[in-house]
Write a protein that binds this DNA or RNA. Structure first.
Lengths: 257, 257
DNA sequence: GAGTGGTCTAGACCACCGA
DNA sequence: CGGTGGTCTAGACCACTCT
């Protein structure tokens, strides 16, 4: 005994310790938008390899505390914006005067097996798909694919320009009196296409929200929305019982011991 | 011109390309629980450094497609389980015959500034905190801190054993007729303590769900729950309009082009 | 002990940004 | 152009698990 004699129960990895140190520094000594020293200097200052330092920064970026911009530097991130996902706030029926969504394109095609299952229809049935981007303060925070079976929209006018068709689909949906919805949220990463729409590199973490809309007991739409996980906090429920909860996301909520 | 002459618009990083290749392989050639070849062999097979291969595996793990176990290997992950977060399903009022939650401990202490703000009470006011772990099929999927101002529980009996006090707090809350809730979900990473409860290493990605419960227009509880992002998909709303939507999390929902 | 994933290093080159 | 973060390499050692 004594060869590796240590009292340290589980020697914390360097990068994790570094993360903690940096997190404290961020909380106490820096403010939003401020740039950190560059990675080469930080790694030297802490006496670790650059890769190790980067591992710590990766964590903090995942937590939404840092933003790294190629060619610029590493900045302190602004607190995440709360994005309401109520049906009303979402501006979904009510497209008219809500600038929060920008339509990208609209396609009509037979449903894939996967999509058919999600919509509860037969594979190959015709489905309209509207792709939209959600904007908050001018920045893209989410991209959504809204799938609507053609069968659910009996009165859709014939051929039109793409942008017109998108509007038609949304308006028809609005008239359908959606009376129920079922949502799920999980973690994902942005594929190339999504990433481009969200102005992020491929592989960026996203919150994938899948919503089934029902009308008169039947599914009438399936929406798959990917929200930037770095900048977004999804908010549900009766809008704002009390103002946004600023309780630390990751940091534990502690009462004095 | 011609010095770096390439037609490839944006040369995809190797690790991202690798991820795509591996993802296809996972989808087509492997099934849940199966183990992949080890990292050294895979990196050799693809002709990349091990670190690069690991970067690709990191992505797939974040997407919940792989599980890596030290000393064992890299396995194909089971599909994420849908975890309902309705008030009923949550077994929150209704603690009695719901085995889904296991109480860890219960403390009573003055509220920190942060916590006070989240609860809309004065800093230093007494708050009961019940920590619980949510189990699904015997596995811990979430850990929750439920904060309840003492002022909201007028009839709480005096001193008791910790486990008894936890029960009392929950039962009192149950009688309070919660009539509203406001939730938010964001991405975080597990700190040491959470990580231990969730049987995950520190830094593991989690979905942080913050819930404010109201009764008669007043906030009566604040819950901060961290769900394992690797294995969980949070499901909201009128439980199951249709069965679970198996639409790919990250994979785009595509209609034939 | 043999095999696995986890951490860490020291260095290189690239892509992007601003001056 | 110089400075930044992003990618990639080849190697080392550690912690863990199973046999």
């Amino acid at each position: 005994m004594g060869t590796t004699g240590q009292l340290s129960a589980v020697p914390e990895p360097k990068y994790w310790h570094l993360r903690t140190v940096l997190l404290r520094a961020i909380d106490s000594e820096f403010s939003t938008g401020q740039v950190l020293p560059n990675e080469r200097e930080l790694s030297a200052r802490f006496g670790v390899a650059r890769a190790t330092l980067r591992q710590a920064l990766d964590q903090l970026e995942l937590e939404g505390r840092l933003v790294r911009r190629r060619g610029i530097g590493t900045l302190i991130a602004a607190p995440r914006v709360g994005v309401p996902v109520n049906r009303q706030e979402e501006g979904w029926p009510g497209t008219a005067r809500n600038q929060a969504w920008r339509t990208v394109d609209c396609t009509t095609a037979p449903a894939s097996a996967q999509l058919a299952k999600g919509l509860g229809i037969a594979e190959g049935a015709t489905v309209h798909t509207v792709r939209r981007v959600r904007l908050v303060e001018g920045r893209a925070v989410a991209s959504e694919s809204l799938h609507v079976p053609a069968a659910a929209l009996p009165h859709l006018p014939g051929f039109r320009a793409e942008s017109d068709r998108a509007r038609s689909v949304l308006r028809q949906l609005e008239r359908l009196e959606v009376d129920g919805e079922s949502r799920s949220v999980e973690l994902g990463v942005a594929e190339a296409e999504q990433a481009a729409l969200l102005e992020r590199p491929p592989g960026a973490p996203v919150l994938v929200m899948t919503t089934q809309y029902a009308s008169a007991g039947r599914l009438v739409a399936l929406a798959v929305a990917t929200y930037r996980a770095d900048t977004c906090k999804l908010t549900f429920g009766e809008a704002g019982l009390v103002e946004v909860t600023p309780v630390g996301a990751t940091a534990e909520v502690r009462t004095a011991s």
